[in-house]
Design a protein around this nucleic acid. Structure first.
Length: 808
RNA sequence: GCCGGAGUGGCGGAAUUGGCAGACGCACUGGAUUCAAAAUCCAGCGAACCAUGGGUUUGUGUGGGUUCAAGUCCCACCUCCGGCACCA
């Protein structure tokens, strides 16, 4: 099987069958590129096989297809492996790439390897640096000091998106906060567009769009200004989405990191308590502090503000349930109508003032068990009392704006993207720190800023950038004044590398530009992007951001990179009886290489496509492998053993056209499992016909059509059979057939006969029978007559070619 | 807690979008072949019942509803999976 398939793989390469053409209508199909970890297993294969079916199918439909592959090659595992095995990250990565690439070739995926992209090579990361500088020039890359997520195990900072449940997304260590100066990309500037443009993506799964929507988390509210009691000129702003609860404010809480705290005129002993509180909360982990179950606590500052609407004095607390990085870093406390404020107020005996009553009952502050957060009727709210809270919300905002104590504000959950990492194996940040000129970008013509040779770097993580200790890297000259200066020693988050790689494939070997605009705009957007849901937020959001930015720069016409997104399910396998995601570390991985050598790549492809619909999780099992092997043998039998001859048989015309029709339909709907079923049905028909009648035969044209239809799924076998049928050229140069609809009309059809909606019989009729005649025939069926039972017939419903329903 | 998605035979899953529920496959059962086994081929296969030439009842998580007709549409609930989770 293996050597046989290998022959055809070599044939495709030799004859450049899958070399990309750039003419006419195009189809760009892309699978998310992998991190090169060496061996690929069936879990990886699923992703690429789905893409390959479409690449081959669209080629046969007459499109110019771009189907490339590359490597997301920077990142921590290379360093970790390097430390363990004493091999440089570069050598480790490059040797993994060559192993993985070889496996890809054995899978027989139709990639055009001439467009391979490797993010850790200078000819690629040169352009990553170029994008960084472009962002910097537009004010979209900036440095700031702030508390950041720090992974103590990986010894580097993490982006917000890389912290899951307070833990590092890579190693699972508990993340701590550190105050550091880091590089950020201003993705928040694009928040509105990233959110609103989701509507344009009608071919994305709703689920992914919803996840992005929640992640961006746009909220419309109002910033309200509270004046201090002790000063006529100082204020504190709070952000709220519930201005309708303003009359219920009984305290205020400020985040411990909010710098305003330092300016508050607190008494000495209170100041000490506050400082202590700030210190302890700074030491808390993300989980301790932010878990929704954590008890809310804080300290009183002795300071008061005035409610701008009521002039009542409001006590100011510092509380670490308030986030410094959202809104203004301070909130108004409305215990009656906010769950968190309620529990805070309970703890410190702060009064609860109800200003919204439910419509159907009365609540009072004495027996409240929890905050009332729904809408209702306003009370204790001066001129707004008696209104619906939803109406009052609007009017209070207007009132605040009129009297000058508040203004409408939009806030986002999305934060700017922290991209600097204190690691060696990444794209160097192309910035230079000059004592005279400040921070300046490297000159474009000096790019790439090369990562120093791994043998000269001690990349064992120490909590500071390994590049800082490489003197010949650090010491440079200022591109502005020419004086001595130092390079930035951080590298970029690998998600920067992968946020634009799909653009580079359009012109992968361009040495002068990031890509030629013409070539890029011929291929972009990606027509079909296939990958796992785990990238629903990070990678896809960052990619959309970068595409929008480059679109604003005039480099890309379309500001959305991926027209259609398909998220495939995971591949599971049993380990000690439990279903687990297939992975090397769990020991349940079926590696592609040995499997393909033994069973062949077509068997792997067929199995993976047939077991389950592509979007669902799939359980790998030996029985399914067997059934596909069996099926492939029956295909060979039909093509090679059933005589090729023209026979008087309408059924075979019907079956082949039915196959073409349903196969095409299934591919449009991503139903690759039923597409395989359709192929099986056709083979069932031919095998059965032949076993019943040894004179049965199949016309050459129909055999050929079948081989073409099966080719996207079983490419090696199809190519072999195509050749054996007497064809010189590759089957993939053939046009995918169109169904002849006229052959799908059967002469004789079966009609279901119902009485009062229940099936009482069936009848075979010729398709051009009149309705009257049919109704007559129906009445003659014994069982039908029995159930009509001489009752008067009210109505007869006739669904053409399907059923008759008699209502008595 | 909030927001999504899904519940169909012993199992993986079909159902042209309101028109024959269970396609296709696995497992299982019976038969052919074989000295025997494997492999292969043929047949059967939701459940219960009448009596097995055929027919009846029931059946798509639960309970209601709309309709001549509901796995599919509407309302309420249960369970599972995924995402977010002090975002004010």
């Amino acid at each position: 099987m293996y050597s046989n398939e290998k022959y055809w793989r070599e044939y495709w390469i030799k004859n450049k069958i899958f070399k990309t053409k750039e003419e006419g209508k195009k189809f760009y199909v892309l699978e998310m590129f992998p991190y090169p970890s060496g061996d690929l297993h069936m879990g990886h294969l699923r992703n690429y096989v789905i893409g390959d079916v479409y690449a081959r199918y669209y080629k046969m439909l007459g499109y110019s297809v771009l189907h490339p592959m590359g490597w997301d090659a920077f990142g921590l595992p290379a360093e970790n492996a390097a430390i363990k095995k004493e091999i440089s990250p570069k050598d480790w990565t490059l040797s993994n790439i060559s192993v993985s690439k070889n496996t890809f070739k054995e899978m027989g995926i139709s990639y055009d390897w001439d467009r391979e992209v490797t993010t850790c090579l200078p000819d690629y990361y040169k352009w990553t640096q170029w994008i960084f500088i472009k962002l910097y020039e537009k004010g979209l890359a900036y440095r700031k000091e702030s508390p950041v997520n720090w992974c103590p195990d990986c010894k580097t900072v993490l982006a917000n998106e890389q912290v899951e449940d307070g833990k590092c997304y890579r190693c699972g260590a508990e993340v701590i906060k550190k105050n550091l100066t880091q590089w950020y990309f201003k993705i928040t500037k694009y928040a509105d567009r990233l959110l609103d443009d989701l509507e344009k993506l009608d071919k994305w799964p709703e689920k992914v769009k919803m996840m992005q929507k929640n992640w961006i988390g746009r909220s419309n509210g109002v910033t309200v200004r509270f004046p201090f009691l002790h000063s006529r000129t100082e204020f504190i702003d709070v952000y709220t989405t519930r201005p309708d609860t303003l009359y219920g404010v009984t305290f205020m809480a400020i985040a411990p990191e909010n710098p305003i705290i330092q300016r508050l005129p607190m008494e000495e002993d209170i100041r000490k308590k506050v400082d202590k509180y700030i210190k302890t909360s700074g030491k808390k982990s993300e989980i301790e502090r932010a878990g929704s179950k954590t008890e809310k606590d804080g300290v009183f500052t002795g300071i008061y503000v005035k409610n701008p609407l009521t002039n009542q004095k409001v006590a100011v607390f510092v509380g670490d349930y308030v986030l410094a990085s959202y809104g203004t870093g301070a909130v108004m406390g409305v215990p009656a109508h906010d769950t968190r404020d309620f529990s805070f107020a309970k703890k410190y005996d702060i009064p609860i003032k109800i200003v919204i009553q439910p419509k159907d009952k009365k609540i009072n502050d004495k027996d409240m068990k929890d905050a009332y957060i729904e809408t209702g009727i306003m009370e204790n709210s001066e001129q707004f009392s008696g209104m619906l809270s939803t109406d009052a919300k609007e009017q209070i905002i207007e009132h605040l704006e009129k009297i000058g104590w508040g203004e409408r504000t939009v806030n986002y959950r999305l934060r700017d993207w922290l991209i600097s990492r204190q690691r060696y194996w990444g794209t160097p940040i192309p910035m230079i720190h000059c004592p005279k000129c400040g921070i300046v970008p490297e000159k474009i013509e000096n790019l790439p800023v090369l990562l120093p040779d791994p043998h000269k770097v001690d990349y064992i993580p120490k909590g500071k950038s390994p590049l800082a200790s490489v003197e010949e890297f650090v010491n440079t000259t200022c591109p502005v004044c020419g004086g001595p200066a130092k390079r930035d020693t951080d590298t970029m988050d690998t998600f920067v590398d992968s946020s634009w790689y799909y653009l580079r494939y359009s012109d992968a070997n361009n040495e002068k530009e990031i890509f030629s605009k013409d070539k890029l705009n011929y291929w972009m957007p990606v027509d079909l992007y296939i990958g796992g849901v785990e990238h629903a937020i990070l990678h896809l959001l960052f990619s959309r951001f970068i595409t929008k930015f480059l679109c604003d720069e005039g480099l890309i016409k379309n500001d959305e990179p991926f027209k259609e997104l398909f998220t495939q399910g995971m591949v599971m396998n049993r380990v000690n009886g439990n279903l687990e995601v297939m992975s090397k570390s769990k020991g349940n991985a079926i590696p592609v290489g040995p499997f393909v050598e033994k069973e062949g790549s077509d068997v792997a492809r067929g199995t993976i496509l047939f077991i389950a619909p592509p979007e669902k999780a799939l359980e790998w099992n030996e029985e399914s492998v067997q059934s596909i092997k069996n099926f492939m043998r029956r295909i060979v039998h039909t093509v090679e053993k059933i005589p090729t001859k023209t026979v008087e048989n309408d059924d075979i015309d019907y079956e082949i056209n039915f196959l073409i029709e349903s196969f095409s339909h299934d591919l449009q709907r991503f139903k690759l499992n039923t597409a395989v079923s359709s192929l099986m049905k056709f083979i069932n028909f031919t095998e059965k016909s032949f076993s019943e009648n040894k004179d049965f035969g199949i016309p050459k044209g129909i055999k050929e059509k079948f081989i073409i239809v099966m080719a996207p799924i079983f490419p090696h076998l199809a190519e072999k059979l195509w050749n054996k049928t007497g064809n010189e050229n590759s089957v993939f140069l053939e046009k995918f057939p169109k169904a002849d609809r006229s052959k799908l009309e059967k002469e004789e059809i079966e009609i279901v006969v119902q009485v009062k909606g229940k099936i009482r019989g069936r009848i075979n009729i010729t398709s051009h029978i009149t309705e009257e005649k049919l109704k007559e025939l129906v009445m003659e069926i014994d069982n039908v007559r029995k159930f009509i039972d001489n009752k008067p017939i009210k109505k007869i419903i006739y669904i053409p070619k399907k059923l008759v329903n008699i209502i008595v």
